[in-house]
Design a protein around this nucleic acid. Structure first.
Lengths: 147, 147
DNA sequence: ACGGTTAATGCTACAATGTTGCATTAACCG
DNA sequence: CGGTTAATGCAACATTGTAGCATTAACCGT
């Protein structure tokens, strides 16, 4: 049973020219393992669960660094807090889905807003951000459940 | 030269059943007069310019009240701060444009994201939020200007 | 027009999220 | 293994938004 994720995280970090630290590896793996985007607290909780207590500031800096290196991307949640997810978005602008029930954010890779719209004359868009709000597939099935 | 806006603001407020106060009138008029959405500080600055200094908390509450009554709507800016604009969005979900040059947010009434996309099975979207980032028409004309 | 009722205001203190500066630690390199 | 310096951890601060409560003033009835 190979564990390519683990080495992958370390390799990705090394490839960026940064130092390969416990924190960076752990944070990137956490993001990679999650199908949903995580906010700062989510990541902190998982670090703690792994027996890796961590400083708030270091976590902010680590997450920012991962985004800066293109190893993760960041969106602003409905609660005006940032949420992070592994994988950059080099040019592939995909949509997101905010579940109003469970509060999680999912990626809709198949939907590309930048290919669909024509803006009024004069506007020069560089990227588009499309966010749906509603009930996600998981919460839709177990309707009534209040996670 | 009639000034319908002024009475309009007061009438709209009265129609909601709330008390018609100086603050509410002034804030609503400021939002109505602006073609762009304003954040809390923008509104506070204009109140001050009108010789109406105001409490931060009152302004937050006034803005929230206007949104609650459907007299204004609110979006979250790229700096994770709220921005407000007159006019509710009863069901008409329009797109917004964040200008990276001047930082302002404009409404693109003609673009309706909720009519364009088909989501994967299971998702139950209730509303869609589409935000373009780039250079707005104003900044595009005077390229190089750094407001 | 006047006074009472109560919504709205303004103040202070607090909460959540994110940032800055700087001393200490530990990753990398020879 | 030891030196260099990026990364960390800590404390203090900044920004954005909230909560509680005493005071003011908008509305209503008379």
């Amino acid at each position: 049973m190979p564990a390519p994720d683990t080495s992958s995280a370390a390799h990705l970090i090394a490839a960026c020219g940064g130092r390969v630290t416990r924190t960076r590896i752990a944070v990137l793996e956490i993001l990679q393992d999650s199908p949903r985007s995580l906010n700062h607290d989510d990541v902190a909780a998982r670090l703690a669960a792994d027996g890796m207590p961590h400083d708030r500031v270091t976590l902010y800096r680590t997450l920012d660094w991962l985004v800066e290196q293109g190893l993760a991307h960041r969106i602003i949640g409905p609660d005006r807090a940032r949420r992070f997810k592994a994988g950059g978005e080099p040019r592939s602008q995909h949509a997101h889905f905010h579940c109003d029930r469970c509060g999680h954010v999912l990626c809709l890779e198949s939907i590309r807003p930048d290919e669909q719209f024509t803006l009024p004359a004069g506007y020069q868009p560089e990227r588009a951000e499309l966010v749906f709000h509603g009930t996600c597939a998981d919460c839709g099935r177990q309707r009534g459940a209040k996670v």
